[in-house]
Every structure is written in structure tokens, then in C-alpha cells.
């Protein structure tokens, strides 16, 4: 799988109305700010918000897709969480290859939802094979 420095890629995903409910069950994170609209509003949020680690999983998916889909290609991923992610609004994960050497690629990524940066300064290392 060849990746070249400067190569760019993108993944688009729109969380549906129940994404956070399924993710709560799958991950074990039942914090009500993600699954209970009334609770989220009561603590000053604009409504239920996405789990940060779900958004990070979308960044991970964009990275493995860029490496040809091999789930084991991803050997490192670091992210910073910023804005709050909302349901039923498209997220765009964009990435760019920074360096390639010894069958490894370093990639930088970020995830945006409209004007909100959900994940910034993401760095991934991919094993190319």
C-alpha cells in the first residue's frame, strides 16, 4: 500500500439520532450528557453530545481507510478533543500524509462538524504493507 507525502484523504460520517445510545451500550460509557436530552439541557448543553472517543474512532477509521483498510495498520493515534459533537450533523475527518519512511507513514488529521473542530492536532502512525 503506497502513501505519499502530501497525499490527502477524507472520511464523511453523519451520526444518526441513536448513535450515542448504541455507542453507550458498546463502550460502557453511559454518561447521561450523551443519551438523555433533558439531562443534557439541564446542565447547560445544547442537547445530547457525541462521546469524544466515538469521534476519535472516526479519526482512527479515516486513518486505517487511508492505509487500505487494514485494521492493524494503525500503530499510534493521539488526539486533542475540542468542540462538542452533535447528532444528525455531518462530520468531516480530513488527513494528510506528513512523512513516509521504512514502510511507516505519519499522518495528521482533524475532525470538523460545520464550524466546530471536534478533534484537532491528531497524529497517527500507519504501518504500510
Amino acid at each position: 500500500m503506497g502513501l505519499e507525502v502530501g497525499e490527502q484523504f477524507e472520511l464523511r460520517v453523519t451520526p444518526d439520532r441513536y448513535t450515542t445510545v448504541r455507542y453507550a451500550g458498546a463502550s460502557g460509557d453511559f454518561n447521561p450528557i450523551h443519551i438523555d436530552e433533558q439531562f443534557a439541557l439541564s446542565v447547560g448543553l445544547p442537547g445530547r453530545i457525541l462521546h469524544g472517543l466515538w469521534s476519535m474512532a472516526q479519526v482512527a477509521r479515516a486513518a486505517t481507510d487511508a492505509a487500505g483498510g487494514d485494521p492493524l495498520a494503525l500503530t499510534e493515534l493521539s488526539v486533542q478533543f475540542r468542540g462538542m459533537g452533535r447528532l444528525e450533523q455531518e462530520i468531516v475527518v480530513s488527513g494528510e500524509v506528513q512523512a513516509v519512511s521504512d514502510a511507516r507513514a505519519r499522518v495528521k488529521l482533524e475532525a470538523r462538524q460545520g464550524d466546530t473542530r471536534l478533534v484537532r492536532n491528531a497524529q497517527a502512525e500507519l504501518l504500510l504493507r
Partner: peptide, 17 residues
């Protein structure tokens, strides 16, 4: 089944999962 559930909830569609 937990792997299948987690993969479905996050969109990891690779058949290995």
C-alpha cells in the same frame, strides 16, 4: 459479540471484525 457490537457502533465495517 462485543467486538461486533463495538465495531457496528463505530462504523468499523472491515469483515475481520
Amino acid at each position: 459479540e462485543k467486538i461486533r457490537e463495538y465495531a457496528a457502533a463505530t462504523g468499523f465495517e472491515h469483515p475481520l471484525h
